[in-house]
Nucleic acid binder design. Structure first.
Lengths: 183, 183
DNA sequence: CGCATTCTATATTGGCTCGATATATGACGA
DNA sequence: TCGTCATATATCGAGCCAATATAGAATGCG
């Protein structure tokens, strides 16, 4: 599922400009999928070429033209076809976990700071998702995905709160007084 | 934290060839970070150019030469410096959730199949991580990250088991008998 | 009032990364 | 013998992100 397909999916719900699609990614999808202008605009151009969406230019007063994209029947079919294919594996890239992996090279203070920052960030995202969960205008899929995100983030917070002492302590053990670093 | 930096990190633990680094990514890191040959080999070349690792070619009988990389003191410093910088946000790309988002375009049967597949996959990954958790040779960081992964995956399984009926039922409501699709 | 920031809106570029593919050989089982 | 898997390196096209450019309006702040 590339950005192109996902744009098509968002357009099954309502017409939108590239800018609005980017906003849709940021509010509510960004916790499990994101996309940048650098992929959205070319995607919309290609979808237009392929006849899966149409583009209506709305000249605005004192603003750049707004290009409003609308899905075509062919586009709707193509998207439903894409949904039917088995989804690929999740791809996760977590700088936080990659850093924690090398906790033995960090000071306990650094590790504590890292985890504090992560907890703050995660709780903030959690609060945001809980707000979104209240919005009753959301589609059923949206609400399920939001609830999924909340469940996962809650597990992360609980894990960090309960287990952080394990990794914070480990950093001390790896640096017994007087011991030289390997190599 | 790019692949280049992560390769450097793995080399702080032991010397390795590109192939072995790829294996390290696949066993134990792949659930939160992955890398392909297409990024590992160029990364190692660049690290060598920059003097952060050295490369020793081991000509093998009847095999391609094995290029064994070893980190330099400068490389170790550069990596520890990189660890000190605040980590970027997690980037997640989940085809599964992207598909679920549009559950109202799928049949209940499709949704059930999707969730069954996801549960099977997640339980399998969970079993793998639980095996890895038993390995006592792992570094403290490894064990923490594995435990983190287990906590998250358990939450996902629980959520899907308890809430799948919500989304499976929603697909029916969106398709009341005789109702025409919007548009 | 002036200045900076933010928002709307589109677009491009460099560089990173993935997935597929190519090459070469050994081992193992059917 | 034939296919497949493992070892081992490497490249290429395509996809994608972060940064940047452009440009006017609105908003905030002192």
């Amino acid at each position: 599922m590339d950005v192109r397909t996902l744009c098509l999916g968002l357009l099954t719900r309502s017409e939108a400009s590239g800018y609005e699609i980017k906003k849709a990614f940021q509010s509510g999808l960004s916790h499990f999928y994101d996309a940048s202008f650098g992929s959205i605009y070319p995607a919309l151009s290609r979808l237009t070429e392929e006849g899966l969406v149409t583009c209506k230019e709305e000249p605005q007063d004192k603003r750049p033209d707004k290009k409003v994209y609308r899905i075509t029947p062919a586009g709707r079919l193509a998207f439903i076809d894409a949904l039917g294919r088995p989804p690929g594996h999740d791809r996760i890239r977590s700088d936080f976990l990659a850093t924690i992996l090398f906790a033995d090279l960090l000071s306990p203070r650094q590790i504590a700071g890292l985890i504090d920052g992560r907890l703050t960030e995660t709780r903030s995202l959690l609060a945001e998702l809980r707000e979104q969960a209240k919005e009753e205008t959301r589609a059923a899929g949206d609400r399920f995905v939001i609830a999924y995100g909340i469940a996962v983030l809650e597990a992360e917070v609980t894990f960090l709160e309960e287990r952080r002492h394990v990794i914070e302590g480990a950093a001390l053990l790896g640096r017994a007084p007087g011991s030289a670093a390997a190599d």
